[in-house]
Amino acid sequence: MSNQIIVVVEHLKGNIEDITFEMLGKGKEIAGATGGELVALLLGNGADGLAGQLGAADKVIYVDDANLAEYNPQAYCKAVTQIVQANSPKMVLIGNTSMGMDIAGGVSVDANLPFIAYASGIANDGSSVTSSLYGGKMNVDSTPSGDGCIVSVIAGSFPADAGKADGSPSVENATVDVSGLSVTFKQLIEPEGGDVDITQQEILVSVGRGIQSDENLPMAEELAAKLGGAISCSRPIVDSKWLAKTRQVGKSGLKVKPKLYLALGISGAPEHIEGMKDADLIIAVNTDPKAPIFDYAHYGVVQDLFDFIPALSGKL
């Protein structure tokens, strides 16, 4: 095993995603504490220009291949596995993101390495990883057995600033075999525009599954209007087609930072928290006093939203 900490760089349309900087920042701490080398693994085709933003790393390993021009689950698995096998790192950090969820488990099987998912904390000596499980209701600390492990990191767990540094880390070009693919990239489909942009709203009244039915949406919409804000929601509300995708807050929705985020009947699963935890003021209303949303809210109201909404609306 080497003393490397490898961070798999995530990028889309020429932009490095924040999760990469979050992992680089944390990786730097681990590398510092263990006397290790922090390596950013960059995959792409003509993407070497991105290395200049990876100054937090001691070294960038860059793989250039036409099959890596766009993110592809199969190609990325193959490439990361081969780099990991060639370098035997102490730890590999991969985002617990849409892309990373396709990679980490595959590399774990193919490179025969332990995999700890949903990390929200990592001990600086690398000996223990905290996973956020059960919709954020339980934390679990685990210790990887054997040498080397893969950790997938929940976005927003570590500050991105700590991993942002320009500079010119040394770039090592590597080649891997990513041929013989049975999955091919077709196209990127951009989100539909035209709706209210919830990322620009100062006040969001956000509803979750606790709202029970689309018939109950008008009371939340009325409250939003009285507060001078807009309505947003958790994912199940969009999956049920009660509100448009453009209103979804979270990991696969939008990241919002309003002056007020009023969460009504939202449990606070990690995927939702990713999208709203930086709001200036978070007030959560939930019937379950143990709902994880209360860990992130500034003010908590244990109450039935069907009693709370009319009470608040009546006072505005």
């Binding site: 889309l12 766009e70 993110y71 592809n72 689950p73 993101t97 849409s98 999955v183 091919t184 990239f185 077709k186 196209q187 990127l188 489909i189 951009e190 989100p191 539909e192 995708k245 453009t246 979804q248 990991k251 696969s252 929705g253 939008l254 990241k255």
Partner: peptide, 8 residues
Amino acid sequence: GAGMVAEF
């Protein structure tokens, strides 16, 4: 994220 979809 953010409503972006990739097709494979």
